[in-house]
Amino acid sequence: MDEHAVSFLQELVETPSPSGFEQPVQRIMRRELSPLADEVRTDVMGNVIARIDAASSQAMRVMLAGHCDEIGFMVRYIDDNGFIYFAPIGGVDAHLVPGQRVHVHTADGPVLGVVGKKPIHLMEPKDRETVVKLNSQFIDLGCADGEAARKLVAVGDPVTFAVGFERLQGELAASRGFDDKMGAFIVVEVLRAVRQRGVPPVEVYGVSTVQEEVGLRGATTSAFGIDPQIGIAVDVGFASDVPGVEMKEIGEFKVGGGPIISRGANINPALFDLLLRTAEEEGIPCQIMGAPRGTGTDANVMQLTRAGVAAALVQVPLRYMHSPVEVLSLADIEATIRLLTGVIYRLDSDFSIIPN
Rank of each mutant, 00 (worst) to 15 (best):
S222F: 05
L339A: 09
D235M: 02
L318N: 15
S7H: 12
E189H: 15
R338C: 03
I353L: 14
E189N: 14
G177W: 00
V114C: 05
P269Y: 03
E326Q: 15
E11D: 14
I261W: 00
L339P: 11
Q10C: 12
P243N: 11
M247E: 15
P285G: 06
L152C: 10
D227L: 07
G66L: 03
L36V: 03
V75K: 02
M1A: 11
S56R: 15
L313W: 00
A310R: 06
P110N: 06
I354K: 12
A299V: 09
N300I: 01
L276C: 04
L64C: 06
A223L: 09
E147M: 10
N268P: 05
G264H: 00
S222C: 13
A173E: 01
S329D: 02
T295W: 00
G206H: 08
C68M: 14
N356C: 06
V188C: 11
L340I: 14
I337P: 00
P98C: 08
A270M: 07
P18Y: 11
L191P: 03
Q169H: 03
V25A: 15
P88L: 07
P16C: 08
D179L: 04
L313H: 04
T220M: 11
E147G: 09
G308I: 13
V102A: 02
P292D: 04
V309N: 14
G256F: 03
L304P: 02
I226S: 12
I344K: 04
A50E: 12
G231D: 11
R277W: 00
D241T: 11
V75C: 00
Y320Q: 10
P317F: 05
G66A: 05
A270H: 09
A265M: 06
F86K: 04
D332A: 06
F224T: 10
E32N: 08
F272N: 01
V92T: 11
V159G: 01
R27S: 12
A239R: 08
E326T: 10
Q100S: 15
D140F: 08
Y85K: 09
I84F: 00
L122M: 14
S7F: 04
A173D: 01
L36F: 01
G198R: 04
N81M: 03
L64P: 07
C286N: 14
G198C: 06
G206C: 11
M29T: 10
P317D: 07
D179E: 07
G198M: 01
H103S: 13
F351R: 05
A107P: 01
S329V: 02
P285T: 07
T305A: 15
A299I: 06
G225Y: 10
P110S: 06
P158M: 04
